[in-house]
Amino acid sequence: MSAATPPLHLRSSTGRARRRRLVGRGMELLATLASVLAVALLAIVVASVIKEGAPALSWDFFTKAPAPFGQTNGGIANSIVGTALMTAMATAMALPAGVLIAIYNVEFAPPRVAEMVRLVLNVLAGVPTIVIGIFVYGLLVVGSGQSAAAASVALAILMLPLIARATEEVLALVPASLREAGLALGGTRARTVVRIILPTAVGGIVTSAIVAVARAAGETAPVLFTSSIVANLVSTDVHSALGSIPLSIYVNSESPSVHDQQQAWAAALVLLVFVLVLSIGGRLLSLRTRRQIERMR
């Protein structure tokens, strides 16, 4: 780690040592360039979205539904409302289930069963989101038609493993001494979990939910077949299909009309800001929680 100065024999500039040092420097340079590349890619994409999207932003963009075909001055209010409702419903399903799974794994499950549940959660996290879309289509849409409720089930399936895994990590961080103290005071297992462990880990659980929301709000594939045939008006009826921001970007991005593409960029800017703010916020919160828990040890 602390190899700021090279070992003595490398400071001599005999051929072999020099070559080794040069190779080392070269590799370090390549690794640095790779990181610069990744950050540059982020900057390029974000800059494009800001440059193309910002001019099309206006008050109307947030408060109006899309304009009828051929007209301008429309907005994405229906999509914003749809995304908000669907993400909220998905969180309401995935958060309790995910936390319960994490509690089961950390507090109750025999090691082998916990391992099995973990494996399945990882598998679920790896299922392509388009396949989740097909699944929910067959499960809920065939027969009863598209609805925001069906889409939120698809989003919840996507969020579940994210929340469960992250929550389990945080629960496992809670010092055993706290758990033992709770039990030693005569608390039952359940009481210890509810009164001591969950409050200690609450920051981490909230973080996991934030990260999952950021992910779900930007997903197109799960809503593509479950809530995509939408009217251009603001609605809060979750039994019918509702628009969503990613879907509006997807549809407009494939349009040949410059106006539609501009709407897509503007919607992308809104989505990107939302997702990045949540991701950064979640990250900061998670650092704080971890530090708090570690201080308890």
């Binding site: 709000a217 997903e219 970007i249 593409q261």
Partner: peptide
């Protein structure tokens, strides 16, 4: 920052890709 790259929604990356 590298992790934020993962947070970009795929539809936004696709929009950037196509245009």
């Amino acid at each position: 920052l590298v992790e934020l790259l993962a947070a970009i929604p795929s539809v936004v990356l696709g929009l950037w890709g196509i245009i």
